[in-house]
Amino acid sequence: MALVMALMMFPQIVETIYSPALTGIAAGFGITAAEAAQTLSLYFLAFALGVVIWGWLSDRIGRRPAMLAGLTLYAVASVWAVFLTSFPLLLAARCLTALGAATGSIVTQTMMRDRYTGRQLARVFSILGMAIAVSPALGVMSGALLTSQWGYRGVFIGLAVLASMLLAWSVLRLPETRPDGYHKAAFKSVFFTMLSDTRLWGNAVLVAVFNVCLFSFYQLAPFMFARLGMETEIFGLAGIVLSLGVGAGAWLNKWLLARHWPEKRILHLSVGFLVVGGVTVHVLDGHISFVAPVVLVVAAYGMAIPNVLAGALVKYRACQGSAGAIFGLFYYLLLAGGLMLAGWSQHFSAVVVTCGLVAFGVLQIESRLQNDAQPETDLP
């Protein structure tokens, strides 16, 4: 379980460890803040492709080989990035690292779905969510330390070391969880089935908007802190506060599930957190206190994501790897698009409020579709 937690934490650590280096990259390559922020958007586009590749391979060759291959690719691409002086090549290296990092998301989720189902799976994701809550803090603080000592190249060295350590640990301890006699469904048929699944698309939008709220902070906040005259280390400390918020949200979700709250009710509460947090961030814009309401935003993430992920693929247990890959493709493409818009807008509070309204709309549509799908009964 310790290894599973580390592998689940890996994608978030490597996404956020890069955030403190954005201002250094902008200065070092002579690009604008918006251009530097778009590296995160491109990262998630490549991440979406990686989710498809490793999810499909996890069904074909097994969970363990897919994980080991992805970690190897990440380590090699990070070493390459250290020596680059061209921004387009840096983007290419970032895309390769994204391809590799995707294995930590999709393959680990698939392994959990191999072992657990239903509300038990939601509780497991909540427990993992509390462990993952420390990931942004570890990432941002490590990135701030590496950047302050060795610049953005220090970040890539750190990423290569981290991936190599996880690779060695996985070689020694990672089991194969793919069931014996596993049915390898045709990827194409699964794709078109899921493409027409309205409920699945609703879940994909929900996962995307909550992730946009989280990662748009790490995308935009370095420049917000710079405008306030704050050092990179202060941004690292903010990561600790937000990690506590994610952990609090995951704990609250686990507590509410134990008291038999319906998942939809928890999702509505988390959407309320998003909207209130976004409006308050707007009110406090221009002052360091804007970080306080961001805790509500990240707590909403910690509450919502375990429930959405746990229930999204109930209909696709016969093809977990491929279905997880396709679902991941859907929401990571939406996430990449959302982060592109966030990077262009450079307005964090507007991003959060918009995401909250979109999530509320999705929940309303899902409730209406569910009511329409219920069979009519004769009046007494």
Rank of each mutant, 00 (worst) to 15 (best):
R259H: 15
R153T: 00
V14Q: 07
A92E: 01
L166R: 04
A304H: 08
V352Q: 00
G158A: 12
K315P: 04
M130I: 14
S216H: 07
G324C: 05
D59W: 07
F330Y: 06
A26N: 06
L99N: 02
F44D: 04
W201E: 09
G30R: 01
G328R: 06
A163F: 10
L333K: 05
M111C: 10
A300G: 15
P375G: 09
A300K: 06
T377R: 03
E176S: 12
L3A: 07
L166D: 02
L220T: 11
G321R: 05
A204V: 10
S289E: 11
L45M: 12
F125V: 08
R317Q: 14
F210M: 09
A292Q: 06
A208F: 11
S58P: 01
R63V: 13
I31N: 00
L40K: 03
W344I: 00
V205E: 10
E35A: 15
Y74G: 01
V190C: 11
A81F: 05
I266W: 14
C213T: 02
T39E: 04
S126D: 12
A131D: 01
A248I: 04
G247R: 07
F47S: 02
I17M: 14
S189H: 12
A34N: 04
G181L: 10
F223E: 02
L309S: 13
R173G: 11
L159D: 00
